[in-house]
């Protein structure tokens, strides 16, 4: 893959979603986003107005999360929240879909939930967070199709607060499902340029990470060797390896673990690193 440092930077949503974050951190986030040429800052609603003011003369967008991180709030609340953050300066809205409704196969509710946000967003981009760690592959595909039908602009893997982060496997599945016309954002647990490049290679065109600066700085190493991107053990990037019974529904956890038993790379699943 040939990707310049600048190209990597402009695919990054520079993210800070922790609850304890103070204004000084948001200021730093915005300054770094301008300095490195990131696509957007991804923040909580309470910081949108401040960030929009700081970024008003730059190409960096303000991206705000909606119904975050659970997605279990009312559709009306999500729509209202979206309308408000757009009014305050957000250009992008990353909403969490109603995961429980999806698992209940209540697809009308899922669709209308997204449609409400899309309508409230007006011209702002809407990204739909699937929270893949709660879903089986069939559910991920269905969620992608619902988001597309509802008029969303992107599908996004995870919140970073759920049971799993982004994996190339999930991104590939999502890209294959939504096709080339829709965006795919990978987010959650992306810490290195190698993670990012693999996700971009799998089909992501936006990367959500709180490690954007380190990622771009370290990516400068790639100029001196191609060997950083040698394949790792397949289990390292497989979502089944991240499955966790304490964080996932039992049947979802077992669905992931069942995949290990039939995995063609099963021989690699012996080491503890």
């Amino acid at each position: 893959m040939t990707l310049s440092v600048a190209e990597l930077a402009c695919s990054i949503d520079h993210t800070e979603l922790k609850p304890e974050v103070k204004r000084s951190k948001i200021q730093q986030l915005c300054e770094e986003a301008i300095s490195y040429g990131f696509a957007a800052v991804c923040i909580n609603p309470t910081h949108v107005q401040y960030a929009a003011e700081l970024l008003k003369d730059s190409a960096v967008k303000v991206c705000c999360v909606i119904g975050f991180p659970l997605g279990a709030t009312l559709s009306t609340a999500k729509a209202f929240e979206t309308k408000e953050v757009v009014r305050l300066g957000a250009s992008e809205a990353d909403m969490v879909l109603n995961v429980g409704a999806l698992r209940d196969q209540n697809y009308d509710l899922v669709r209308s939930d997204i449609e409400g946000v899309v309508a409230a967003a007006d011209e702002a981009l809407v990204k739909v967070i699937l929270e893949t760690g709660f879903l089986t592959d069939d559910e991920k595909r269905k969620a992608c199709l619902l988001a597309k039908e509802a008029g969303a602009d992107f599908v996004k893997t995870s919140t970073g607060f759920g049971p799993m982060g982004a994996t190339p496997y999930d991104v590939r599945l999502m890209r294959e499902t939504v096709g080339p016309s829709m965006g795919v954002k990978a987010a959650g647990g992306i810490r290195t340029f190698k993670d990012a490049l693999r996700l971009i290679d799998a089909g992501a065109n936006r990367i959500g990470t709180s490690s954007g600066v380190a990622m771009v700085e370290d990516f400068r190493w790639a100029r001196f060797s191609d060997s950083w991107l040698q394949p790792d053990k397949p289990c390292w990037t497989c979502p089944s390896r991240a499955a966790n019974l304490t964080k996932q529904p039992k049947e979802v956890y077992l669905w992931y673990k069942q995949r290990c038993l039939t995995c063609p790379d099963r021989e690699y699943n012996v080491f503890n690193d």
Binding site: T192, F193, K194, D218, W221, S225, D226, S227, W228, Q230, P231, D232, K233, W236, F271, D273
Partner: peptide, 13 residues
């Protein structure tokens, strides 16, 4: 993992 983690068992690269 500085600058990135690579597979310590691999010989290629």
């Amino acid at each position: 993992g500085a600058p990135v983690l690579i597979d310590r068992d691999r010989t290629e690269g």
